[in-house]
Amino acid sequence: MKKRIALSWSGGKDCCMALDTLIKQGYEVVSLVTTVPKEHGRTFGHGERTEMIKLQGEALSIPVHFIECTYETYTNEFVNAVQTLKNQYGITGIAYGDLYLKEHRDWGENVALAADVEALYPLWTNKENALMLLKNFVDSGYQAIVIRVREDVLDETWLGRLIDESFIREVEQTATCPMGESGEYHTFVFDGPLFSKRIQLDGREIIKLETTKKLEFKIHHLIDGEK
């Protein structure tokens, strides 16, 4: 019997590759877990609107479990959510798409310990391997677009860039981690091998969020068709 697990989901390339890797390893991902701050009305990690995450869940045929929380209650609410999923779906673990930041892994392992489940990090590696991981994503068949940049690192001309060979060449020339592991940039995955439908994105608009700029799409819907 496959181990049933939940996956922390931001909507970007890292968690998507974690999902792909976990499924290839024989896990059954029964829920995508996304935190939503009460005070912002957007996801914590990428500042994405919840309807965009819902579209991904529908395209992947995996239910999304939103955790409504504040900065102060973030950890406790996450633990509670994992325990709820444990009771509801019988999950044995919670997976994360983190790559090499130890403080992130420590937090995730503490959450798993508190909820009495296993912590899984399918992409975990050394910082030096970040460029290789980016190349692996480009070769994977998934499609992602840059939807948020940290203004102290990358300017808004990076918004709307597809994660492709040209992106690899140009990001390699910056001081940014190629995978954006420290939040230099964030992405939104809109198609790929596990997607039963493609997410069509139109009507671009750039907005400012604190120290970052965010690309929004006024028009977004699923496109049916054979994969």
Rank of each mutant, 00 (worst) to 15 (best):
K3W: 01
K3N: 12
L7Y: 11
G12V: 09
M17V: 08
L19G: 06
L19E: 03
D20V: 10
K24P: 00
G26N: 02
S31M: 09
T35C: 11
F44E: 04
G45H: 07
H46G: 15
G47V: 07
E48G: 06
M52S: 01
I53Q: 03
I67E: 02
I67R: 02
C69W: 00
C69T: 12
T70M: 03
T75D: 06
Q83N: 13
Q83L: 12
T84H: 14
Q88S: 14
G90W: 12
G90F: 12
G97W: 01
K102R: 11
N110M: 11
A114Q: 13
D116E: 15
D116C: 12
A119M: 09
L120V: 14
K135W: 02
F137C: 02
A144P: 00
R150N: 15
D155K: 09
I168T: 08
I168A: 04
R169W: 07
R169S: 14
A175G: 14
T176N: 06
E184Y: 06
H186S: 06
F188K: 03
V189R: 00
F190P: 02
D191F: 09
P193K: 10
D202I: 11
G203H: 05
I206V: 15
I206H: 06
K213T: 13
K214E: 14
E216L: 12
F217K: 04
H220T: 01
E226I: 15
